[in-house]
């Protein structure tokens, strides 16, 4: 037995096996977004379905500018009527949007590669939506946010920077936890 050769062989083989085993624990589709920590991309989109929240009642077509919302936590949710997980998360988003209506939080749904007609029908089918839905022709804003697919949701802090990105269907628990953490520490400093 040539032990030197065996040792070399083991030295080659073990890392490969280890690497593949490591790969088994990873999701290759889970790619972190570089956005968190950076200023949120500008959003200037037309509303096609107004929300029912009093502050945000607006006529269809009114543009929404993210940059105009200072000292507000903004939730940007990319969705589409053809997206199954969007159906799953929609009740949670609507419920939390209503619950946080009197807090400095604003929700926006940005339509991703879908027609406005389909989306309106879908919103009606889902029993309405308290926050406005915005049209994003050509997905330019989605690309600006580095969207891969739907649903994806971005949380923008009161400083106007992206705080985090969430991929997949949101739950009430996740939403509450994210919003509370974004609202809480900023409260004392928010007066500045």
């Amino acid at each position: 037995m040539n032990w030197k050769r065996a040792a070399i062989a083991a030295g080659v083989a073990l890392p490969i096996i280890g690497l593949l085993a490591f790969g088994m624990t990873r999701d290759p589709k889970d790619i972190p977004s570089p956005l968190p920590g950076n200023p949120a991309p500008s959003v200037e989109l037309a509303t096609f379905a107004p929300g029912d929240e009093p502050v945000l009642v607006r006529a269809a077509g009114t543009p929404v500018r993210l940059s105009a919302m200072r000292d507000t936590v903004v939730v940007v949710n990319f969705f589409a009527s053809w997206c199954m997980p969007c159906r799953v998360e929609h009740p949670a988003l609507s419920a939390i949007a209503r619950r946080y209506a009197d807090r400095p939080v604003r929700f926006f749904g940005v339509l991703y590669n879908d027609t406005e007609a389909n989306a309106r029908r879908w919103i009606d089918m889902m029993g309405g939506q308290p926050y406005p839905a915005l049209a994003d022709p050509g997905a330019r804003t989605a690309i600006d946010f580095g969207v891969y697919g739907v649903p994806e949701t971005f949380f923008v802090g009161r400083d106007g920077r992206v705080a985090s990105k969430f991929t997949g269907p949101l739950t009430e628990a996740v939403l509450t936890q994210k919003l509370d953490s974004l609202l809480a520490p900023a409260a004392p400093k928010g007066a500045e």
Partner: peptide, 22 residues
Amino acid sequence: YYFLAFIAAGLVLTFALVAGNS
């Protein structure tokens, strides 16, 4: 994981035999 174990076994067998017959 089955495949991984199989690859590892294949590597061990090969290396052991090659080293033994060098």
